[in-house]
Design a binder for these strands. Structure first.
Lengths: 216, 216
DNA sequence: ACCTGAACACCGTTCAAGT
DNA sequence: ACCTGAACACCGTTCAAGT
């Protein structure tokens, strides 16, 4: 994702050779520092050491470049999902919880990317194939983890897509509230967040209602 | 706040008299049609029939105007919350569910506003007092409804702020996925959405886990 | 007080032109 | 093939000037 080995110390070559990748790296860095609203294609080009029209050789327009960044984000979640399944083969509940944390940590580390994934900047309807497929694969890998739990008799027999939707709604809603600073002070402390995450996972699994013999 | 008594119907007065309000109306309309990214202050001014520098008499900058729109959104949720409490005085569970629907319907009707409320365009930290207070009141009114349920012995005794956080995470996460088109086709049908909302409310209250004697 | 036009430093995108 | 500078139609914001 962010592995540019070529810090070309050489005197700048005619043909960059890796410009597309360099542009993506520069764009992600700028995105992280200033947010989508302030992300300027011209500035990205300058950061990559290239004229402000060069990016158009590799991306149809600004939106196309942003979609490429978002697709990378979805692919990251898909990869993590696979890793988790392999790491905890017989523990579907653990799989779901872990995937939730990965999503949440991604939000903490790269909030701008996560805003891209589920925000209003990109609409999946008008998006290119690369982004649509990446998003769809991320969803499917979550659904697979939910189905693992259902096969183990763990979850309700509700449609797996709906259970997955509930999980992603909770996780993403929480992540979003945290990274956009919507959690009011008494709860927003650094260390509190881990505790909050656990509490929400518990509610997702067991619900808000008081259960008989359970007054937690 | 938006109570300018002088509705001078006279042929366009020198002094508009209600320009601030007119600008907000024009801005909301433009916002709804084109999204924040495309919202131009110059265009807002033109829509209000005024020069492109006139808005600066009423708003410090573009962000200030956007914050005013967002504050109005939070206040709407706060008002709805009060109404619901009065309408269903002894039914705290109903109160919570209804508030969730109001939030969701607001998202369907004014997606751009809801993106403003919880998106990355505005950060509450740097926001002006008006927006911060409006946001805080909306949260508090949700917490009050959660506490109503706790007093009735309905919910777990977890910190009410945390229960409220779980509820808003679920509701907002779901709303966001719907309005940003992230719900994949098999689930995204028009009529399905009401059904989905009910399913998620059930999961929020009862959890994902299969309960003894309950195989729903 | 309230509004204006000109001006400044930016944008995204297109295009003929260079190598 | 890949990159460039000039050009176009936009931005947000500032400011001296008008009434």
């Amino acid at each position: 994702m962010i592995n540019s080995g070529n810090k070309s110390i050489k005197k700048k070559a005619y043909h960059h050779g890796d410009l597309r990748h360099s542009l993506l790296v520069a764009a992600e860095s700028l995105l992280a520092r200033k947010g989508v609203a302030e992300l300027s294609l011209r500035e990205v080009a300058k950061a990559a050491g290239v004229s402000h029209t060069a990016p158009y050789r590799h991306f149809r327009d600004k939106r196309d470049l942003i979609e490429a960044l978002a697709a990378e984000g979805f692919r990251y979640l898909t990869r993590e999902s696979w890793k988790i399944e392999q790491k905890y083969p017989r523990q579907p509940e653990k799989q779901l919880i872990e995937l939730g944390w990965r999503h949440f940590y991604l939000a903490l580390e790269k909030p701008a990317i996560v805003h891209l994934l589920f925000g209003d900047v990109l609409s999946l309807k008008n998006a290119g194939k690369e982004l649509r497929e990446a998003a769809s694969e991320a969803i499917e890998s979550l659904i697979r983890i939910v189905k693992n739990g259902q096969k183990a008799g763990l979850y309700k027999k509700t449609n797996a897509r709906i259970l997955a939707l509930a999980a992603i709604s909770m996780v993403h809603g929480f992540s979003l509230l945290v990274i956009s600073g919507r959690i009011p002070p008494p709860l927003s402390g650094r260390l509190q967040v881990k505790y909050l995450g656990k509490a929400l996972a518990d509610i997702l699994l067991h619900g808000m209602l008081k259960r008989h013999g359970n007054t937690r």
